[in-house]
Design a binder for these strands. Structure first.
Lengths: 104, 104
DNA sequence: CGAATCCATAAGTACAGACTTATGTAATGT
DNA sequence: ACATTACATAAGTCTGTACTTATGGATTCG
Protein backbone atom coordinates (compact mmCIF):
# COMPACT_ATOMS: atom_id res chain seq x y z
CA UNK A 1 0.00 0.00 0.00
CA UNK A 2 2.93 2.43 0.27
CA UNK A 3 2.68 3.97 -3.16
CA UNK A 4 3.39 1.19 -5.62
CA UNK A 5 5.16 3.78 -7.77
CA UNK A 6 8.28 3.59 -5.66
CA UNK A 7 8.73 -0.11 -6.45
CA UNK A 8 8.43 0.55 -10.13
CA UNK A 9 10.82 3.50 -9.83
CA UNK A 10 13.44 1.35 -8.14
CA UNK A 11 13.18 -1.48 -10.66
CA UNK A 12 15.49 0.11 -13.21
CA UNK A 13 19.24 0.12 -12.44
CA UNK A 14 19.95 3.38 -14.26
CA UNK A 15 17.16 5.06 -12.33
CA UNK A 16 18.52 3.73 -9.04
CA UNK A 17 21.94 5.11 -9.95
CA UNK A 18 20.41 8.50 -10.74
CA UNK A 19 18.68 8.52 -7.39
CA UNK A 20 21.87 7.52 -5.61
CA UNK A 21 23.76 10.41 -7.14
CA UNK A 22 21.00 12.79 -6.19
CA UNK A 23 21.13 11.61 -2.61
CA UNK A 24 24.77 12.73 -2.49
CA UNK A 25 24.41 16.06 -4.28
CA UNK A 26 21.99 18.40 -5.97
CA UNK A 27 22.59 18.18 -9.71
CA UNK A 28 21.22 19.54 -12.95
CA UNK A 29 19.97 17.40 -15.81
CA UNK A 30 23.14 18.21 -17.71
CA UNK A 31 25.30 17.11 -14.80
CA UNK A 32 23.49 13.80 -14.65
CA UNK A 33 23.56 13.28 -18.40
CA UNK A 34 27.33 13.66 -18.34
CA UNK A 35 27.57 10.85 -15.80
CA UNK A 36 25.61 8.24 -17.71
CA UNK A 37 25.80 6.51 -21.04
CA UNK A 38 22.27 7.46 -22.05
CA UNK A 39 20.80 10.49 -23.77
CA UNK A 40 19.50 13.61 -22.04
CA UNK A 41 15.86 12.76 -22.79
CA UNK A 42 16.37 9.38 -21.16
CA UNK A 43 17.62 11.13 -18.02
CA UNK A 44 14.66 13.53 -18.08
CA UNK A 45 12.31 10.58 -18.35
CA UNK A 46 13.94 8.83 -15.41
CA UNK A 47 13.70 12.01 -13.37
CA UNK A 48 10.03 12.26 -14.23
CA UNK A 49 9.42 8.76 -12.92
CA UNK A 50 11.42 9.41 -9.75
CA UNK A 51 9.49 12.62 -9.20
CA UNK A 52 6.20 10.82 -9.72
CA UNK A 53 7.23 8.43 -6.97
CA UNK A 54 8.05 11.33 -4.66
CA UNK A 55 11.68 10.35 -4.57
CA UNK A 56 13.24 13.53 -5.97
CA UNK A 57 12.48 17.23 -5.73
CA UNK A 58 13.00 19.82 -8.44
CA UNK A 59 14.16 23.42 -8.17
CA UNK A 60 14.01 25.66 -11.21
CA UNK A 61 16.54 28.40 -11.69
CA UNK A 62 16.65 30.11 -15.04
CA UNK A 63 16.97 27.49 -17.69
CA UNK A 64 18.43 24.96 -15.31
CA UNK A 65 16.56 22.36 -13.30
CA UNK A 66 18.27 21.27 -10.11
CA UNK A 67 17.27 17.89 -8.75
CA UNK A 68 17.94 16.31 -5.39
CA UNK A 69 16.70 13.33 -3.42
CA UNK A 70 13.51 14.26 -1.60
CA UNK A 71 13.61 14.20 2.18
CA UNK A 72 11.93 11.03 3.30
CA UNK A 73 12.24 9.67 -0.22
CA UNK A 74 12.37 6.12 1.07
CA UNK A 75 9.89 6.41 3.89
CA UNK A 76 7.19 4.41 2.19
CA UNK A 77 9.68 1.72 1.30
CA UNK A 78 11.01 1.63 4.84
CA UNK A 79 7.53 1.21 6.22
CA UNK A 80 6.92 -1.67 3.85
CA UNK A 81 10.21 -3.35 4.74
CA UNK A 82 9.52 -3.03 8.45
CA UNK A 83 6.14 -4.57 8.00
CA UNK A 84 7.30 -7.63 6.11
CA UNK A 85 10.67 -8.07 7.68
CA UNK A 86 11.23 -11.68 8.73
CA UNK A 87 13.21 -12.61 11.85
CA UNK A 88 13.83 -9.02 12.67
CA UNK A 89 14.81 -9.39 16.33
CA UNK A 90 18.10 -10.84 15.07
CA UNK A 91 19.09 -7.39 13.95
CA UNK A 92 18.12 -5.45 17.02
CA UNK A 93 21.51 -5.76 18.69
CA UNK A 94 23.30 -4.28 15.70
CA UNK A 95 20.77 -1.49 15.68
CA UNK A 96 21.37 -0.74 19.35
CA UNK A 97 25.07 -0.40 18.64
CA UNK A 98 24.41 2.13 15.93
CA UNK A 99 22.20 4.17 18.20
CA UNK A 100 24.77 4.08 20.99
CA UNK A 101 27.36 5.32 18.52
CA UNK A 102 25.14 8.18 17.50
CA UNK A 103 24.59 9.11 21.13
CA UNK A 104 28.25 9.87 21.68
CA UNK B 1 24.99 -3.41 -5.20
CA UNK B 2 22.64 -5.51 -3.04
CA UNK B 3 21.51 -8.02 -5.60
CA UNK B 4 19.57 -6.10 -8.20
CA UNK B 5 17.24 -9.10 -8.49
CA UNK B 6 15.31 -8.06 -5.43
CA UNK B 7 14.31 -4.76 -7.00
CA UNK B 8 13.05 -6.51 -10.08
CA UNK B 9 11.24 -9.05 -7.93
CA UNK B 10 9.45 -6.31 -6.02
CA UNK B 11 8.42 -4.42 -9.12
CA UNK B 12 5.35 -6.54 -9.83
CA UNK B 13 2.30 -6.04 -7.57
CA UNK B 14 1.11 -9.63 -7.83
CA UNK B 15 4.56 -10.84 -6.87
CA UNK B 16 4.67 -8.49 -3.90
CA UNK B 17 1.30 -9.81 -2.78
CA UNK B 18 2.54 -13.39 -3.07
CA UNK B 19 5.55 -12.53 -0.96
CA UNK B 20 3.38 -10.80 1.62
CA UNK B 21 1.22 -13.88 1.99
CA UNK B 22 4.28 -16.05 2.35
CA UNK B 23 5.61 -13.85 5.10
CA UNK B 24 2.47 -14.60 7.09
CA UNK B 25 2.25 -18.34 6.45
CA UNK B 26 3.87 -21.26 4.68
CA UNK B 27 1.70 -22.13 1.69
CA UNK B 28 1.62 -24.51 -1.25
CA UNK B 29 1.37 -23.43 -4.87
CA UNK B 30 -2.25 -24.55 -4.88
CA UNK B 31 -2.99 -22.48 -1.80
CA UNK B 32 -1.54 -19.42 -3.45
CA UNK B 33 -3.25 -20.05 -6.76
CA UNK B 34 -6.59 -20.11 -5.00
CA UNK B 35 -5.91 -16.66 -3.58
CA UNK B 36 -5.14 -14.90 -6.84
CA UNK B 37 -6.87 -14.25 -10.12
CA UNK B 38 -4.06 -15.72 -12.20
CA UNK B 39 -3.27 -19.23 -13.36
CA UNK B 40 -1.15 -21.78 -11.50
CA UNK B 41 1.75 -21.45 -13.97
CA UNK B 42 1.77 -17.70 -13.38
CA UNK B 43 2.11 -18.32 -9.64
CA UNK B 44 4.92 -20.83 -10.23
CA UNK B 45 6.70 -18.27 -12.37
CA UNK B 46 6.40 -15.60 -9.71
CA UNK B 47 7.72 -18.03 -7.12
CA UNK B 48 10.65 -18.80 -9.35
CA UNK B 49 11.54 -15.10 -9.56
CA UNK B 50 11.15 -14.64 -5.81
CA UNK B 51 13.33 -17.65 -5.19
CA UNK B 52 15.95 -16.33 -7.60
CA UNK B 53 16.04 -13.15 -5.54
CA UNK B 54 16.50 -15.15 -2.35
CA UNK B 55 13.19 -13.93 -1.01
CA UNK B 56 11.41 -17.26 -0.56
CA UNK B 57 12.44 -20.76 0.45
CA UNK B 58 10.98 -24.01 -0.85
CA UNK B 59 10.32 -27.25 0.96
CA UNK B 60 9.28 -30.33 -0.98
CA UNK B 61 6.98 -32.89 0.50
CA UNK B 62 5.56 -35.52 -1.79
CA UNK B 63 3.94 -33.78 -4.69
CA UNK B 64 3.48 -30.56 -2.79
CA UNK B 65 5.86 -27.62 -2.69
CA UNK B 66 5.62 -25.49 0.42
CA UNK B 67 6.87 -21.95 0.12
CA UNK B 68 7.59 -19.38 2.80
CA UNK B 69 9.38 -16.04 3.03
CA UNK B 70 13.09 -16.63 3.48
CA UNK B 71 14.63 -15.41 6.72
CA UNK B 72 16.42 -12.19 5.98
CA UNK B 73 14.52 -11.93 2.71
CA UNK B 74 14.72 -8.15 2.80
CA UNK B 75 18.20 -7.77 4.22
CA UNK B 76 19.75 -6.54 1.01
CA UNK B 77 16.93 -4.09 0.53
CA UNK B 78 17.26 -2.86 4.09
CA UNK B 79 20.97 -2.28 3.64
CA UNK B 80 20.28 -0.28 0.52
CA UNK B 81 17.60 1.80 2.18
CA UNK B 82 19.84 2.54 5.14
CA UNK B 83 22.59 3.65 2.85
CA UNK B 84 20.51 6.08 0.84
CA UNK B 85 18.14 7.19 3.51
CA UNK B 86 17.83 10.97 3.58
CA UNK B 87 17.38 12.90 6.82
CA UNK B 88 17.53 9.77 8.84
CA UNK B 89 18.30 11.25 12.26
CA UNK B 90 14.68 12.42 12.30
CA UNK B 91 13.62 8.85 12.81
CA UNK B 92 16.05 7.86 15.50
CA UNK B 93 13.80 8.85 18.38
CA UNK B 94 10.97 6.70 17.12
CA UNK B 95 13.41 3.83 16.73
CA UNK B 96 14.62 4.22 20.29
CA UNK B 97 11.07 3.93 21.51
CA UNK B 98 10.60 0.70 19.66
CA UNK B 99 13.76 -0.76 21.12
CA UNK B 100 12.81 0.31 24.62
CA UNK B 101 9.46 -1.41 24.14
CA UNK B 102 11.17 -4.60 23.07
CA UNK B 103 13.44 -4.50 26.07
CA UNK B 104 10.54 -4.80 28.48
C1' DC C 1 -2.44 -50.86 -12.64
C1' DG C 2 -4.86 -46.47 -14.26
C1' DA C 3 -6.77 -41.97 -12.90
C1' DA C 4 -6.24 -37.91 -10.60
C1' DT C 5 -3.53 -34.29 -8.32
C1' DC C 6 0.51 -31.08 -7.78
C1' DC C 7 3.76 -28.58 -9.76
C1' DA C 8 7.13 -26.99 -13.35
C1' DT C 9 8.40 -25.95 -17.92
C1' DA C 10 7.53 -24.81 -22.97
C1' DA C 11 5.78 -21.90 -26.36
C1' DG C 12 3.30 -18.11 -27.88
C1' DT C 13 0.92 -13.44 -27.19
C1' DA C 14 0.42 -8.83 -25.75
C1' DC C 15 1.57 -4.98 -23.30
C1' DA C 16 4.87 -2.13 -20.47
C1' DG C 17 8.79 0.41 -20.50
C1' DA C 18 13.62 1.97 -21.59
C1' DC C 19 15.73 3.77 -25.17
C1' DT C 20 16.45 6.55 -29.51
C1' DT C 21 16.00 10.87 -32.71
C1' DA C 22 13.43 14.94 -33.64
C1' DT C 23 11.48 18.96 -32.15
C1' DG C 24 9.53 22.64 -29.22
C1' DT C 25 9.90 26.17 -25.39
C1' DA C 26 12.20 29.10 -22.48
C1' DA C 27 16.21 31.47 -20.75
C1' DT C 28 20.92 33.20 -21.53
C1' DG C 29 24.75 34.95 -24.28
C1' DT C 30 26.87 37.92 -28.12
C1' DA D 1 18.00 40.11 -33.17
C1' DC D 2 19.99 35.79 -33.58
C1' DA D 3 22.46 31.89 -31.89
C1' DT D 4 23.13 28.85 -28.14
C1' DT D 5 22.15 26.37 -24.09
C1' DA D 6 19.02 23.67 -20.91
C1' DC D 7 15.34 20.94 -20.51
C1' DA D 8 10.90 18.60 -21.71
C1' DT D 9 7.85 16.27 -24.69
C1' DA D 10 6.51 13.56 -28.98
C1' DA D 11 6.82 9.60 -31.67
C1' DG D 12 8.70 5.40 -32.93
C1' DT D 13 11.47 1.07 -31.98
C1' DC D 14 12.80 -2.89 -29.59
C1' DT D 15 13.42 -5.66 -25.57
C1' DG D 16 11.61 -7.49 -21.28
C1' DT D 17 8.09 -9.59 -18.96
C1' DA D 18 3.51 -11.04 -17.19
C1' DC D 19 0.26 -13.67 -18.78
C1' DT D 20 -2.07 -17.54 -21.31
C1' DT D 21 -2.81 -22.66 -22.88
C1' DA D 22 -0.59 -27.00 -23.50
C1' DT D 23 2.05 -30.52 -21.83
C1' DG D 24 5.16 -33.46 -19.09
C1' DG D 25 7.06 -35.62 -14.69
C1' DA D 26 6.27 -37.06 -10.27
C1' DT D 27 3.46 -38.50 -6.50
C1' DT D 28 -0.78 -40.25 -4.38
C1' DC D 29 -5.27 -42.45 -4.63
C1' DG D 30 -8.79 -46.18 -5.92
Amino acid sequence: MPEPDIFRALADPTRRAVFERLSAAELTVSDLTRGFAVSQPAISQHLSVLKGAGMVAERRQGRQAWYRAAPGALEGLEAWVTRYRSFWPERVEALKDVLKEMGE
